[in-house]
Design a protein around this nucleic acid. Sequence first.
RNA 1: GCCGCUGUGGUGGAAUGGUAGACACGCUUGACUCAAAAUCAAGUGGGGGCAACUCCGUGUCGGUUCGAGUCCGACCAGCGGUACCA
Length: 1138
Amino acid sequence: MKRYNPRDIEPKWQQIWANTKLYAAKNGDQTRPKYYMLTEFPYPSGDGLHAGHAREYTIGDVIARHKRMQGYNVLFPMGYDAFGLPTENYAIKHKVTPQSATARNTAMFRQQMQSLGYSIDWDREVNTSDPAYYKWTQWLFLRFLEQGLAYQAELPINWCPFEKTGLANEEVVDGKHERCGTPVEKKLLKQWVMRITDYADRLIDGLKSIDYPSRISSQQINWIGRSEGAEIEFAVDDEVLTVYTTRPDTLAGATFLVLAPEHPAVTAITAAEQRAAVEAYVKQAQAESELARQATDRPKTGVWTGAVAKNPLSGRDMPVWVADYVLAGYGTGAIMAVPAHDERDFAFAKAMNQRLLATEGPEYIDKETAPRPNEPFHHREVVQAIVKHPTEDKYLLQRMLGWETKSLSLVSGGIESGEDPLQAIVRELREETGYVHIKSLAVTGLPYGVKFYHEHKKVNRSARVTTVFIQLESLRQVAVAAEEQALNESVWTGAKEALSQLHGEGARRVFNEHTAGEPTPFIAITPVIEPITGTPHGDDHEKEAIVAVVHNAKTNETLLLDWGPRHSNWGGMLFIGGGVEPGEDLVKAAEREIAEETGYKHVKFVHQTEVPVNNYYYSNVKDRHDKARMYGLLFELEDDAQTDTNMDEGEKDKFTPKWVPDDEVFSTVNDGGHEVIYRMLMRDEAYPGEGVLVNSGQFDGLSGIEAKRAITKWLFDQGIGRGATKFKLRDWIFSRQHYWGEPIPVVHCAKCGVVPVPDDQLPVELPQVDHYEPTDDGQSPLAAIDEWVNTTCPTCGGPARRETDTMPNWAGSSWYWLRYMDAHNDQAFADRAALDYWGVVDLYLGGMEHTTLHLLYSRFWHQFLYDQGLVPTPEPYAARRGQGIVLAADGRKMSKSLGNVVNPTDVIAQYGADAFRLYILFMAPYDETTPWSEERLSGVSRFVYRVWSLGQELMAAPAAIAAEPAGDQGAFEAEVDRATHKTLKKLHDDLESMRFNTTVSALMEYVNVLTDAKVKSRLLQPANAALRQRTLRTLILMLAPSAPHLAEELWHELGETTSVHLAGWPQYDPALLQDDVVTVVVQVNGKLRGNILATPDATEPELIALAQAEPNVAKHLDGVQIVKIIVVPRKLVNFVVK
RNA sequence: GCCGCUGUGGUGGAAUGGUAGACACGCUUGACUCAAAAUCAAGUGGGGGCAACUCCGUGUCGGUUCGAGUCCGACCAGCGGUACCA
């Protein structure tokens, strides 16, 4: 028997295939359908082919070979993406030219790919650094230039200080250069830029017509980052600031504007007294590195410009700030900030207000009650409010009863620990005056200090006073305690009168500033969206409600009601809830519900949500759809005292109160509305979701898209805004300051400006030089080569200088699949007939890492070429698939420094190319990342040897020794043929769906059947010569795409003289797939209780009878009642019993 | 945070809503051998049982269904991408 020796047969056949040009694709062949199988061409680095390449090209080769055997005219080409920095660096280091390094490396790659037996049409090989190739890259660039899609601009670009070159945005990852990891700097340079943003919409829309994995299309869509919203203009002094927002519905809640530090209007709008601060901030922002600015969770910083704009909808002042959380490069570089509904604006507002509140304002000494000398001061933090009447132009002042002074004061009180000034003043207002219905409140003016003698407490008092402006919504009041009534009397007064009677210099000053409309940097947080939870049904029964969150600070627990298991629309764990009677105070209502439902009678109100949550839900009790406008109220439990709960008997058993640890509350509550309430109450955060508009004048009551549309239209009608679409995608920085790239084919002439090199003078070839090290000054090394740089102007003939920037390495790969169609054309980048014939790439296989780089760039080029009528299709690739990464055996990435790299050449030397290929297919689904395993590779290698031996045995069996076979010959042949055709069908299905791992499994199973001792010995009998022959033939054909050398060798041993790879792919015969006997599974209540053998066409009653007769099934059917019998012909019988 | 993908034995991974773990690796036992390697044969999810058989089992919790790894809902974990993009 001949031994299997891949070291002999593999090179032998590779040589023969090459010599006969077996895999040559034929342009214009109308006798067969075409199939264009493209894999990404490699960058020819000095390290040679790696395992990832081998995976990609092996998959591509198997598909190409299978298609070829199916009768397609297959184009499966290869080339080299040869320009780029690694080669340049390598050449500098080894003191050779990039040209010679490239020649050496491409030869190595070609040799390695050939040794893997790929069916590449080598006559079409391309190399992007070949002048014959880049002539056409330059030619195509000039078409972009003609159409204005390539332009020069002075831009702050990403600069890699290590490789000394500019970079595209797509090449910067986490603030670092994706290739070398060096932190990227900003550098202002004159650059060539490609207007890819013109194609942003097309690049998204085109994805619909092509077959990309959702992973890739969603990543591209994300990267392009289209968003729809509105541009809104705000007048600030003489300037008009235009902002971009995706949330025009929150316009009324925009309480300030923010400009990026780089925004051109910053200087113009900055007020004189703020100039120094603003300039310092802008300077500091510019000094920050990209990396630092990108850091997540960095505290918000900013500075007030002193300017104020007016909100066109709410009419309120909006201080204009400068802050680096707004990016100059996106939208208009300015935003309207809505702190109530945007997390970033919220964080900024909180931080800035806090900073302002912490500042020390002027200090006043009260002259009427001057502090006593030589006595210590007792300090308090105080908040006071300028409270405005809901309808009239009047302010709420207080007269202290029992004091000697006749003057009035603002509503005020001490800030208790843990409170912020806004919370404190709301509490004070409620306790002292009973007013609770607040429309808006905001800090106004810087805090000031005051010192006086406290006559009641008989101490010197120093206070820091924060002033808040409160606009009442209505005069709705709650009862005021008698002791409070005895202290103060409330008076509504006009502004002038108030000012004259106000006690205290500081209070008079802030009141005056406020009523005079002095600009203030303080940022109000005004909610304009009421959250919606649940789904409206149209006929919802509306009511006002409270949700009471009762917290116990001693145990850090929160009170929940357990309504039993959660169903789709009732039950679960909820807070205490209940209806509010018309006109009833929310706090009172909540206290009543708490007592009724849980018995707790001593709870202290802390605060409530500013807006209600519109919760749509199904009321199980009332059997109807309800809409509750739920206000959340937070209470602190004062003591455990409980009264009897006061509930109907029916209501009592429905729920049980439960104390839940605070950190589990959020995950325990399982109702959308209650969750939102809890977030609003407990977590200091914005509500960024959608909902119903409030505090938005005429737009109140609108929601979602409705509101966006209505407000955008209103802005348009007012002439201060319009709908707008923006993209995250930026134009493509196309210049590189390096030697080893395509020279950008233009010259700069003092007289004519930028002049394209005429087409007939292309290519602009790279000069052959000794030194081409990159420079630090942002100049290409080409600039130093005078004899190359100095040229004449093609237009005027005068002296001119060549452009010295080169193209990025993405340029050559942006059109290479077109060159394969007609690789040697020197009249055009490709002949139109060839372009028409091959059309789109049918399948493009490559790595996931190119999704937002090469794949996006090349689609952009192709779409442009289509627009110019240069290519026949709008998209280059009909389908794209990405292969998974091959990890090292240790589960880590393969890397030279870890020493865990698998070298394909070594693998081939030890196991042969066919075993290597089969293992690549077998190791995992092709798109799954998976570790390399030499042990499993050896398993596949055993399979290859088994196939070889089987082939040898089947061929060596004597054809005519008289010996009669035992048993039924027809049944045996049918059994073997059935196995063959089942395998064929499996291969057919799995190759179509690219499930290569299971095709190898199927081949293994098939070979296992044939090598089974009983089957094989009978197969070797003389009577089975014909069966043996057709079985082996089919096996070889099935192996041909994945193990081409093995298949070819056995094929020729079989006596064939033409290549197996030109043979037709075998078709399976459905008739031969039919089993004589099928195994039918018998279940009782879905549990497997046995199986029966039946003919495929057995009827239902027959199957049931057989099943019932099965002893174990009978056992389980004994003594039970059969409710139902499910029969799936040829598959299963299931008895449903009681 | 957002977008996408993935969760199945000791491992890589199979399974049109119908016998979970195909095919391999590894491991155990046996044959061959002086011995080892290679090869061949048998076994191999966990628990119980002498056995027939039986219970449990595909990240978690629910739901739909005669029947769920597969479909639906909520969550958890891992991977990839992206991120003050307003």
